[in-house]
Simulated scan of single mutants.
Amino acid sequence: MTTRPVAVIAYDGAELLDIACITTPFYLANHVVPTHDAYDVRVVSLDGGPVRTESGLTLHADGALQLLAGPVDTVVVSGGLGHLHAATLAPLLHHVRRLAADSRRVASVCTGTSVLAAAGLLDGRRATTHWRFAADLARRHPEVTVDPDPIFVRDGNVATAAGVTSALDLTLAFIEEDLGSRVARIVAQNLVTYLQRPGNQAQMSLFTAQVGAADEHGTVREAVGFITTHLDGDLSTGAVAAAVGVSPRHLGRLFRDHTGRPPAQFVRRARIEAAARLLESTTLPVATVAHRCGFRSAEALRQSFTSHYATSPTSYRTRFARAAAEGPAP
């Protein structure tokens, strides 16, 4: 068994969960494989000093970033509210680039994407970050294609995770890639988490994401309620506007201001997410799921579903059924 060095880069203001969601799955994997040394995980900081995490706890590093010699198999930059300051530290960026040049994989968690972007490692790549910080990242780094929706994105050998618990999904994907699905499944079950949410799953359900936005404006709240309870009906912008007593133009403006998307886009995603829930929780035929969620046909559902989830409705259902059938790990 080859031992894979993993460097998790921390700094003042890093989020402790962003670090632990990387280190803990690798640690557990070491107790699943026979040799107990699949990964050699080290948390490093500039000069090797302790870091004051975002939550106020002090974390002692395993060593100095400057002294870490390559090649390192996997380099991960943690996130946290200290990311903007960290992205200005020339020595930190220099050593991130140095290690990345010889590493098999480079990754970031949450706002750690800012550090990778500042180091030039995301130029011309697609990346994600926590949805709260996506617009700012896109503004600061126009050379990066920022996608605020997925829980993680892999572009070549560079991966970016949306934040906090999405780091679990990314690390499980790494473990499955390295050691196989059985090891990853056992690790996931020990963590009492999914194995594993696909990277293209949205960071937040559209319905959950819009609760705050809807609460800010009564008409938006009423429109969202109408949409989510009439998915199989006429949900054209005109029909929704008539249901809540405003003009289509005014409804469009409200939705863009309070949800960040036009009504038609909101409706399309609402229908796709509802279809996903039915596929997971029922055995209804795909054609029936399509009808209940407002799609003209099973083929129309398949096209929209594949565009959003990068998999077909049938494959999506099969994956969830297989996960349920596997049951507890041996």
Rank of each mutant, 00 (worst) to 15 (best):
M1A: 14
R4G: 01
P5Q: 11
V8W: 04
Y11N: 03
E15H: 12
F26E: 00
H31K: 12
H31M: 11
V33R: 08
A38P: 02
G49K: 15
P50Q: 09
L57T: 12
A64K: 07
A64E: 05
A69V: 10
T74H: 13
T74G: 01
G79A: 05
G79L: 03
L81E: 05
L81N: 06
T88R: 14
L89P: 00
H94F: 11
L99M: 10
R105D: 03
A107F: 06
G112R: 04
T113L: 04
L116C: 10
A119H: 01
D123Q: 14
G124H: 13
F133K: 06
A135C: 01
A138K: 09
A138G: 14
V146S: 01
V146Y: 04
P148G: 09
R154H: 10
N157A: 15
A159H: 11
T171N: 06
F174Y: 13
F174R: 01
I175R: 03
E176H: 11
S181K: 09
R185D: 08
I186A: 15
Q189V: 05
N190F: 05
L206Q: 12
L206H: 11
V211R: 15
V211Q: 14
H217V: 02
H217S: 04
T219E: 08
R221S: 12
I227R: 00
L235W: 03
S236A: 05
G238I: 07
G238K: 14
P248Q: 07
P262L: 06
A270F: 02
L278S: 06
L279E: 03
L279C: 09
E280G: 02
S281A: 14
T288C: 00
A290T: 02
L301W: 04
Q303V: 14
H308F: 14
T311Q: 15
S312D: 15
R322P: 00
A324C: 03
